[in-house]
Nucleic acid binder design. Structure first.
Lengths: 136, 136
DNA sequence: ATAAAAACATATCAATATACTAGGATTTCA
DNA sequence: TGAAATCCTAGTATATTGATATGTTTTTAT
């Protein structure tokens, strides 16, 4: 039931961008430095978030990334799905039936787990997680 | 967030034993055949359940395994923990702090996920999952 | 124009974990 | 005493993960 670094880094990356929301696009290099994650690896992850439409990018010098909508409109579930973190503990819970799913006594619990996880990640947004910026 | 085969096989194995609860010990070979899982691999898994005290074994000819307590007293959480399936998506959610856990904005969501999963697996027992045996 | 800075794209690779196999040693019953 | 079963530990192939490497394209500033 562990989550991969893609999911963890993806969320941290998005939280970083959420902290900069409203300002200029942020270069990946900056995020990588702040979060202490390999820039090249983050590049792959941020592209998935980009293709999923969660962020928008500006190419060229002084380019960078920014959230494509407000932090309160981006759920953790949106992010995890974008970087292909499966939310179900087994594929069958996503109705990708296996040979024995007809008689599988274990299936209901996997579905319950999946629903419980979805309940959490779909109801928490970046805004919920953002540390209160102590601007005075 | 995928569960390993150890977790899946472990639960199926226990459900199989739950179906035989009250009768004679069941040989692993039979379970392996019924569930279509490698006997040698199941052997390792069943030993973990044995050491955790969820099942008891009878050695020698005509030996086998049986649940050590009633199906309604064995939760799915008991089983998953016995075979070392982590219920938290990240170690930090289990209070194994990492360097950045002090300022980690992502930590709360991992804890929420962990608690949601625990809520499910600790409140479902083998008896809940056992198909109604149509003994008439 | 040109150089620098940044995003975009894809291939490759090393480390790790998973899933499974192998080969016995021990115990018990018939 | 031998067959059937549990017990124990080491080894191994495969898949996944996490990361590098190399380069292309786009844009801005000089």
């Amino acid at each position: 039931m562990k989550i991969t670094t893609k999911g963890r880094y993806g969320l941290r990356l998005m939280l970083d961008l959420a902290g900069c929301y409203g300002g200029q696009p942020v270069a990946l290099k900056e995020i990588a430095r702040r979060q202490d994650i390999s820039e090249k690896y983050l590049e792959q992850i941020i592209q998935q978030l980009n293709r999923a439409g969660l962020i928008s990018s500006v190419r060229g010098a002084h380019g960078g990334y920014s959230l494509s909508r407000s932090p309160q409109d981006i759920s953790v579930g949106d992010i995890l799905r974008s970087v292909e973190v499966p939310l179900a503990p087994v594929e069958c819970a996503d109705d990708i039936a296996c040979e024995r799913s007809g008689s599988c006594a274990a299936l209901p619990i996997w579905k319950e787990i999946k629903e419980a996880v979805e309940q959490v990640v779909d109801h928490r947004t970046l805004a919920d997680l953002l540390p209160a910026s102590d601007t005075e």
